[in-house]
């Protein structure tokens, strides 16, 4: 197991995150710091990444694992550079989420939960993302893509491919709707 280390930039951010909570309550920073680790270490939380979090927050590694495994947004397996999260709950389903999922599956030749061979895309169906009024929708990194059509999906995936960049929840986004 090789050791992973946060960049000095990230360590400074972690210091600031810990300062938001009272003396001795720095464990509160765990979820924000896990997000930071996921963004810094290739989009997923390997045991090494979680150990780095434990070290930075002076927690037992097990305290980190049990939290990371509880929350849907933490990937405990590698994912593609662009994690496509498609909402499939009621309001999105009513407006064609299943069809959008099928379209992406066909286009990328993967099923829900799988990653393309080139490591570019992972498809993940998720529950309501609070964008029900602009359904169907999907999220890539922090960006919401709303009022989807097949054409819109095609264009978004093409742009992702051209950019060839890992998308994270810390990305700056264009605010479309709200």
């Amino acid at each position: 197991m090789s050791e992973l280390k946060f960049s000095s930039e990230s360590l400074a951010v972690i210091e600031k995150m810990m300062a938001r909570y009272p003396e001795g309550k720095h464990k509160s920073a765990l979820i924000p710091v896990l997000h930071l680790a996921q963004a810094e270490f290739d989009g997923w939380l390997s045991p090494e990444a979680m150990n780095a979090v434990a070290a930075a927050l002076k927690l037992q590694p097990v305290e980190v694992y049990e939290v990371a495994s509880f929350y849907t947004m933490f990937n405990l397996k590698p994912v593609g550079k662009c994690l496509i999260e498609v909402c499939r709950t009621s309001s999105c389903w009513l407006r064609g989420a299943n069809e959008i999922v099928e379209h992406i599956e066909k286009k990328l030749n993967i099923k829900d939960g799988e990653t393309t061979a080139d490591g570019m895309f992972t498809l993940k169906t998720v529950e309501c993302l609070g964008s029900c009024g602009t359904a169907p929708m999907m999220m890539i990194g922090a960006q919401f893509h709303e009022n989807l059509s097949y054409e819109k999906v095609d264009a978004i995936l093409a742009t992702c491919k051209t950019e060839n960049k890992r998308k994270t929840y810390f990305d700056n986004v264009n605010i479309d709707q709200y």
Binding site: R20, K25, K27, S28, A29, L30, I31, P32, L34, H35, V67, F70, Y71, T72, M73, F74, V126, E127
Partner: peptide, 22 residues
Amino acid sequence: HVGAGAYICGEETALLESLEGK
């Protein structure tokens, strides 16, 4: 303070647990 995807953390005591890093 940002969460990480869990509907149950909307329930107020689950939210407090989550805010404590659990």
